[in-house]
């Protein structure tokens, strides 16, 4: 019998550094806080937004990556609220580091409530992408990702950035395309707080990129296919 003692990936990091680390692993405390936050978010979405999810049967067992159109801070909350069980506990929203991880308080909120991992716009290094890819597979995680890179300022969907391909090209990890409708009207980037309004999430069938090359051309292919699927889901929703 071989014992497999596997210390936390973030062991030995000072508190502040740990919050921003891509190796941050949730313990019991984080899981309890994150679970309480998810319950609050679900109540908010049900009461103020009559939140509706279709296609939940398309969600595979972790690991997988969820991608969607991005026009609001509600987006990550909606996608997270559509997950249940181990997938919900192992879901990390990949959030803009320069918005969510700038101070101690926002980092605490992003890490414990949102269970977010930071992505630094135009500053994310290849090694960090590799760490995220490794963790996705080894730790059987779920990443919630918005490949447009930023919230749409007019509600229309922008082009997907190819960075998404780094996580899934050449691996068995599927991408689940999603389309969220109503988030821009409820909470656009120009508003400080959300207002009531119907939200609809449509979850599409998972896409596999196991045969796609892990290079720049492969990444572009991943982004293009995912973008087309999300647009198609948006078309169906309309």
């Amino acid at each position: 019998m071989t014992w497999q003692l596997k210390p936390a990936r973030d062991l030995g990091l000072p508190a502040q550094e740990r919050l921003r680390s891509h190796g941050r692993e949730a313990g019991l405390g984080s899981v309890v806080v994150h679970g309480a936050w998810r319950a609050l978010v679900r109540a908010h979405l049900a009461l103020l937004h009559r939140y509706e999810v279709t296609g939940q049967e398309n969600l595979p067992e972790p690991p997988f990556v969820m991608v969607a159109n991005h026009s609001s801070h509600l987006d990550a909350l909606c996608l997270g609220a559509a997950l249940h069980g181990p997938a919900a506990r192992h879901a990390h929203a990949l959030a803009a580091g320069d918005t969510f991880f700038t101070s101690g308080a926002t980092s605490l909120f992003a890490a414990y409530a949102l269970n977010a991992l930071p992505v630094w716009r135009k500053r994310t290094r290849a090694k960090e992408l590799e760490t995220l890819r490794t963790r996705l597979i080894e730790d059987e995680l779920v990443y919630i990702l918005f490949p447009e890179g930023t919230r749409s300022r007019d509600g229309s969907m922008g082009a997907f950035q190819p960075g998404l391909g780094a996580f899934v090209a050449g691996s068995a990890v599927p991408v689940v395309p999603c389309h969220l409708q109503g988030a821009f009207a409820a909470w656009p980037a120009t508003r400080s707080w959300p207002r009531p309004g119907k939200l609809r999430l449509r979850i599409g069938a998972p896409l596999s990129f196991a045969e796609t090359a892990q290079d720049r051309a492969g990444w572009v292919e991943v982004a293009a296919r995912c973008e087309a699927e999300v647009r198609a889901l948006g078309g169906k929703a309309a």
């Binding site: 003692l5 596997k6 210390p7 692993e25 313990g27 019991l28 405390g29």
Partner: peptide, 21 residues
């Protein structure tokens, strides 16, 4: 407990960590 469970990997067993706590 927190330090020990993170060092040994026991922290990934949420139920057992809760029972010990």
């Amino acid at each position: 407990l927190r330090e020990y469970d993170r060092a040994t990997g026991l922290f990934r067993e949420y139920l057992l960590t809760a029972v010990v706590a």
